[in-house]
Write a protein that binds this DNA or RNA. Structure first.
Length: 707
DNA sequence: AAGCAATAG
DNA sequence: GGTTCTATTGCTT
């Protein structure tokens, strides 16, 4: 990618002096071609950085905190704090004990739950996007905005040589606003930055810093020059100054610990070392693209575009702890995390296609070390539960999936010690796409499965706009019309389309991909055929062309392997999915828990099981949903309930296995008849607006079951 | 597609 | 440095 690191300024005469000749060292070294500067690419990039973001959010939620020293605590760490606390010596990532020592009056607010921060964070991004759609997020509290087009627009409307001055500071400014006319674009950028900061304060009550420069690197570096709540513009003639002011390589965004270490082994310890190091030698160590990029960064050159971030590509939830060593605890934690995650996923409105479980194992040899993860596809019937709002059902069906993944990483018949568990949804599909595999009609609505890096992001970066009524960020949904065509929602240029790539280069062919399809005759039931995982009743309601799509070989071949899926829990055959009887699910967890309890009994030596009574038979847990009815979706000749993982089961001692088997047999007899029941609460909590952050039932989806 | 490393806030 | 709780990208298989 990066390549032609040549995009920078046309006259580098000024700033090359104090450091190294950038043209000679960087770009021209690899490309002997003389300067054919076609496009100066006179970009104006803004970087916004909210002041101690978490603390600000908490002070807005509780104004009484405004003037006291405030720290945001996660576990035993102060992750950030307000300026009052900073004045008392509290710093980021200081331990709670140290912080209290420095500042005994420090007020602490728990910050493990990121919900409020995340929501406010997206409000900021959306506000920025309402003025210019080229907004890229960096973490929760920073945003880049490419305002080049906005600046050009203003420049065109500026009558000749109006006296334009800079808003805010100018980096290394000694000659006041004399230069404003020489740098009209940056000056206008500083006005826009000031307006946006003001808007953020007016509408959201948040203060922050901004940096104005000609690329992202420089905008980010300069934004922190004056803190808090101020802004700074960097002029091209001061680029070498700001680069020279960096105390070390690590200060360069993009140079982390590992690359710094690697560079140090090469004798590169400072920015200047890096600038002077022969490119070819660096290429041998790091590869061409990393080498060139690093050298450019050291010179303040960065041609990377501001890539609109849009809605997140994954949602995850995690918790860390000192020690977790029993499967019961693990199960409980997974259940808890999944509850939160599924609810968030539901509000998002998209349907996850893959699930990942990651753990961090403690081991003496390996110190504290790294994360290990396993992932798997999410059967679509589970995904649908998420989007349709059957939260508890979805969780109950995801837990066995997680358990399977867990056992791929942890041999629970041997003592283990975890310090973190993370659950993650990714491969998020917008509604309408969920039904189908790729390469079908529905791929119109699947987001960007192809290279998202494409360039030429210039067209219409302006579009100052949009209906504020809906969340811009999550408004990635497309409407599906019956005839299979799509249209983006009114006025909201689906920002999910990364600039131009989808529209121009991709050829999403509805053309029935008959190529390479085996003739696969499945799901013949009498005269009607039904696709798997779709309620036949519902299926009949679909438009004919959609029905055909779902029965096409392309779609059927795209389904997840059934043998793999059936290992875990389910799998209701078509005839069993009827909405009227889809209520058996919350038993699921219960069963798993019971198995886990038994399992845990085997190495109870290590852990005290405090939350659940060990007596499993008869003893009711705290969560009792109406009458106890246990039903097993699986056919009658099956050995154990469909919701029990055979792998888990097989790990149980023979005696326990026998006990469980007999329990199941009894339950099975008992419950043949009960069927009414309701999911308890699963309806109540969700509202159509809860899709709040952006959903709108789309035309296709409503054909599928409401709940 | 899966798993991990690196980076970042 | 790692600590927290995320999230993204790119490499390797």
């Amino acid at each position: 990618m990066d390549s032609s690191g040549d995009d920078m300024e046309e006259d580098e005469t000024e700033w090359k002096s104090s450091l190294v000749d950038s043209a000679a060292v960087s770009s021209d070294a690899s490309a002997p071609e003389p300067n054919t500067k076609l496009t100066p690419a006179h970009r104006v990039i803004l970087h916004f950085d909210l002041d101690c973001f978490y603390a600000q959010v908490e002070m807005i939620r509780n104004p009484a905190l405004k003037d006291v020293p405030l720290g945001i605590q996660q576990k035993y760490i102060i992750v950030t704090c307000n300026y009052v606390a900073r004045a008392r010596g509290v710093t980021k990532l200081m331990s709670v004990t140290d912080a209290k020592e420095k500042c005994p009056e420090l007020v602490l607010v728990k910050g493990e739950d990121l919900t409020h921060y995340r929501e406010m964070s997206y409000k900021v991004t959306e506000l920025l996007m309402s003025h210019c759609r080229l907004v890229e997020r960096l973490g929760f509290d920073e945003n880049f905005v490419d305002v080049t087009e906005m600046v050009e627009h203003r420049l065109a409307q500026t009558t000749g040589s109006d006296s334009i001055s800079f808003k805010g500071h100018v980096y290394n400014d000694f000659t006041a606003d004399v230069k404003a006319s020489d740098h009209a674009r940056l000056a206008l950028g500083s006005h826009i930055a000031a307006e946006l900061r003001e808007a953020i304060f007016e509408k959201l009550g948040l203060t922050g810093c901004a940096g104005i420069a000609t690329n992202k690197l420089l905008a980010k570096l300069v934004s922190g020059t004056f803190k808090p709540n101020q802004q700074t513009t960097l002029l091209p003639e001061n680029i070498s100054d700001i680069m020279g002011s960096l105390s070390g390589l690590r200060k360069v965004p993009g140079v982390g610990h590992q690359t710094a270490k690697k560079l140090q082994t090469l004798g590169i310890a400072s920015l200047k070392d890096l600038q002077l190091y022969p490119l070819n030698d660096l290429v041998k160590e790091l590869g061409a693209s990393s080498a060139q990029r690093l050298k450019n960064l050291a010179l303040g050159i960065d041609d990377s575009p501001v890539t609109p971030t849009g809605a997140p590509q994954s949602l995850s939830d995690e918790d860390s702890f000192k020690k977790m060593s029993s499967t019961v605890e693990v199960l409980e934690k997974i259940h808890e995390l999944l509850g939160n995650l599924v609810e968030r996923m539901h509000k998002d409105g998209r349907q996850p296609q893959t699930f990942r479980l990651t753990v961090r194992k403690y081991s003496a040899t390996n110190k504290w070390f790294n994360r290990e993860s396993r992932q798997c596809p999410i059967p679509s019937h589970i995904g649908q539960k998420i989007t349709s709002g059957s939260i508890e059902d979805a969780v109950d069906q995801l837990v066995p999936l997680a358990v399977k993944l867990f056992h791929k990483m942890v041999n629970s018949s041997v003592p283990f010690h975890l310090t973190l568990i993370n659950v993650c949804f990714s491969n998020l599909q917008t509604r309408g796409a969920v039904i189908s595999g790729k390469g079908t009609i529905m791929s119109f609505f699947t987001q960007n499965s192809s290279p998202r890096k494409t360039q030429s992001q210039d067209e219409s970066s302006q579009s100052p706009c949009l209906d504020q009524e809906e969340s811009i960020i999550t408004q990635h949904k497309m409407q599906v019309t019956i005839d299979g065509s799509s249209s983006s929602k009114a006025g909201l240029h689906g920002f999910k389309h990364k600039p131009s790539s989808a529209a121009v280069e991709e050829n999403p062919k509805p053309s029935c991909s008959t190529s390479g399809c085996k003739t696969n005759e499945t799901n013949m039931t009498g005269t009607h055929r039904f696709p798997p995982n779709v309620d036949p009743e519902v299926f009949k309601l679909l438009p004919e062309d959609i029905q055909e799509e779902l029965l096409s070989p392309a779609y059927l071949n795209s389904l997840p392997d059934r043998s793999a899926a059936s290992l875990v829990t389910h799998e209701p055959l078509n005839s069993e999915i009827k909405p009227s009887q889809s209520c058996t699910d919350s038993q699921n967890t219960k069963e798993i828990k019971e198995v886990a309890e038994k399992l845990n009994g085997c190495h109870r030596a290590t852990t005290v099981n405090r939350r659940w009574p060990v007596s499993t038979s008869g003893g009711h847990r705290e969560v009792v949903t109406g009458e106890e009815k246990v039903s097993f979706p699986q056919s009658s000749d099956c050995k154990f309930p469909g919701n029990v993982d055979p792998e888990v089961f097989s790990e149980l001692p023979p005696g326990v296995q026998r006990e469980l088997m007999s329990e199941w047999k009894q339950q099975k007899l008992v419950l043949k008849a009960s069927s009414s029941g309701k999911p308890g609460r699963s309806f109540l909590t969700k509202d159509r607006k809860a899709a709040g952050k952006g959903s709108q039932t789309n035309n296709l989806f409503k054909y599928f079951k409401p709940s």
